[in-house]
């Protein structure tokens, strides 16, 4: 309490000794966060990391060295899951970011009114509870009675097996993810666009540069840090992709939509092999770490 008193008397010339100084105050500021983080994140993480070196035998955990990790490298399904996940990363993420940036630019145009309405509408998919949207998607994508195939039939398109054909299941998965996250990224881009000084465009306008040129020569370079930001976010999100495949396809058909975290989940919660599941998790952390680091590095060197 006494620093309170000290504070009130500060007006005077005498500099009383402060108990809270710029030297120690950062520790006070991070203390609550750090405490929560240590208890509820670091402890469980260490505990599960230890688990990845263990194996269950007859209901008891025994030390198993690196055997879980060794097993991982011979596990075909793990590599398949890895492949699926990267395929989504390489195809879906660029499409989603491209759409997001295009919508953001359109929304940022002075010609558009009702901006608030559009913003909210595009953002809505990101705020829906998954339990909800998944049921809707399943019903809409049903091969025989789904709305999507019904609408496609007007264009003379044969029913598509959205969730039970290996190829289309991947497509459906990507569509569902794009639906959910485009608006989210769009909002981030919109924030970035509003930080670009208008004078840049005015100058370009004077030089007679068209909108398309302006987009590529001003907007894109100016948004570069935001591209990086959203790209890193989407990479992490995609590598941890669980919800959509869990509910829409359960990883099927024939594992064509199996993702790494879904595979992890199956081992932990279906087969009760928590040691192996933990090993998968930490290999995944390693991959994400290396990728994110690489992305930042790459972006940094291009400057």
């Amino acid at each position: 309490m006494s620093q309170l008193k000290a504070e009130t008397q500060i007006n005077g010339k005498r500099q009383r000794k402060r108990w809270i100084t710029p030297k120690n105050v950062p520790y006070l500021f991070i203390l609550p966060a750090l405490t929560f983080f240590m208890i509820f994140t670091v402890y469980p993480v260490i505990s599960s990391l230890l688990l990845s070196f263990q194996k269950r035998e007859g209901g008891e955990y025994v030390f198993a060295g690196l055997s879980n990790y060794a097993r991982l490298f011979q596990d075909e399904l793990f590599f398949k899951a890895l492949g699926n996940t990267f395929l989504i990363l390489l195809i879906q993420v660029p499409i989603q970011l491209f759409l997001a940036v295009v919508i953001a630019v359109a929304l940022n145009s002075q010609m558009v009114k009702l901006k608030g309405f559009f913003r909210v509408s595009f953002f809505m998919p990101a705020i829906t509870a998954l339990v909800a949207s998944s049921i809707i998607f399943m019903i809409m994508l049903d091969e025989n009675y789904g709305l999507v195939n019904y609408l496609l039939s007007f264009f003379g398109i044969e029913p598509i097996a959205w969730l039970s054909d290996p190829f289309w299941a991947k497509v459906a998965l990507m569509v569902a993810i794009t639906w959910r996250w485009t608006g989210y990224n769009m909002v981030i881009f919109l924030a970035g666009l509003q930080n670009i000084p208008g004078s840049l465009y005015e100058a370009a306008e004077m030089d007679g540069a068209g909108k398309l040129r302006q987009f590529f020569y001003i907007t894109v370079p100016q948004l570069k840090p935001i591209f990086l930001f959203t790209f890193v976010l989407s990479t992490i999100g995609t590598l941890q992709l669980f919800d959509e495949p869990y509910i829409l396809t359960e990883g099927g058909p024939n594992n064509s939509t199996l993702t790494i975290t879904l595979y992890l989940y199956q081992h932990g919660f279906k087969y009760f092999d928590f040691g192996y599941a933990s090993a998968i998790a930490y290999i995944l952390v390693l991959i994400i770490g290396v990728l994110s680091w690489g992305q930042m590095k790459l972006a940094g060197e291009n400057d």
């Binding site: 950062p26 983080f37 993480v45 599960s48 992490i236 992890l264 989940y265 928590f274 599941a277 770490g289």
Partner: peptide, 26 residues
């Protein structure tokens, strides 16, 4: 500062399923 911040970033990358059981035990 930097090690702690780095730890926080790593935490973003951990799939939550593996921490469920220890957390539950707490």
């Amino acid at each position: 500062r930097n090690p702690i911040f780095f730890l926080l970033l790593v935490a973003i990358m951990i799939p939550y399923h593996v921490t469920l059981i220890p957390l539950f035990e707490i």
